[in-house]
């Protein structure tokens, strides 16, 4: 049985004037340790699906199983990273990264030291007592990653976590996140609209088509790209041919819409 199983999920948003189906017939399995990307044009429901997997939204229909168990009891097993760091500006970096542990009542000397160690591993030394606004965008996003990893989630959700960063920082952070996840053997789902990022980081790219959001096509990445770090994968000779394939598929989705 798969690590994460998404079975026939439908989701509809209701407003006074309309009912919009954001997702329909999503069935998907993710294996332990796998890195999967959700790629698609905006409005294809990929962020909605992420919120459903994280247990933040209840789907209109369908079920999510994490290690064969329904999601409800599994809240702390899922870490979520947003487009911006959303570090609390009135808390120091230390208070920020220990927040998850505090809320789930796991805060003790051991977990605290582990979190602070992780901060050092991320290259953030001696900033524990600083406030988020004293840090650069890349450093803040790294601190946010530490905050997410501190509770040791089994599954990590990344909702366009690099989209607000400049290109250079983004490439560096892609490598850092990828290495960290490999080292901890974490399963991760990345939502992005950046084709290159999806190819460079993932084991599998899942292309979504919009209105209603559904899985259009699944692209498994070849082993030679999977074994490389994102930065090296971007320079691999097969990278551009895969990029072209996905690009054309995305184009066909756009033209099909009109």
């Amino acid at each position: 049985m798969s690590f994460l199983a998404i079975k026939d999920v439908h989701h509809t948003y209701f407003t006074k004037v309309s009912a919009t189906t954001a997702l329909s017939e999503i069935t998907l399995q993710v294996e332990e340790g796998e890195f999967v990307s959700f790629l698609g044009p905006s409005g294809c429901g990929k962020s909605t699906l992420l919120s459903i997997i994280a247990g933040l939204i209840k789907p209109t229909q369908g079920s999510i199983l994490l290690e064969n168990k329904p999601l409800s009891g599994a809240k702390n097993q899922i870490g979520y990273m947003l487009q911006q760091d959303y570090l609390f500006p009135w808390k120091t970096i230390e208070e920020n990264i220990l927040l998850g542990l505090k809320l789930s009542k796991q805060l003790n000397d051991e977990t605290k030291n582990a979190a602070l160690d992780l901060l050092k591993q991320m290259g953030l030394n001696g900033i524990e007592k600083q406030l988020p606004k004293q840090l650069s965008g890349g450093m803040r996003q790294r601190a946010a990653l530490v905050r997410t990893l501190a509770t040791e989630p089994k599954l990590l959700m990344l909702d366009e976590p690099f989209s607000a960063l400049d290109y250079q920082t983004k490439l560096k952070l892609e490598d850092l996140v990828s290495n960290t996840l490999d080292a901890f053997g974490k399963t991760a789902i990345l939502v992005t609209h950046d084709i290159g990022e999806a190819i460079a980081m993932s084991d599998r790219v899942i292309l979504f088509s919009p209105s209603p959001g559904s899985i259009h096509k699944v692209f498994p990445m070849p082993d030679e790209l999977r074994s490389l770090s994102p930065f090296k994968a971007r320079n691999h000779e097969r990278f551009s041919s895969i990029f072209q394939t996905i690009w054309k598929e995305l184009e066909s989705l756009e033209s099909g819409k009109e």
Binding site: A54, K75, N76, W90, L103, S104
Partner: peptide, 28 residues
Amino acid sequence: DPNYLKVLQTFGANRFQCFKEAILPASF
């Protein structure tokens, strides 16, 4: 910003914790 609440909810925070950690200090 509802995203602050989203961060807290992914950590399993209840409504009181959301108020104490995000809503009140942000409105200070």
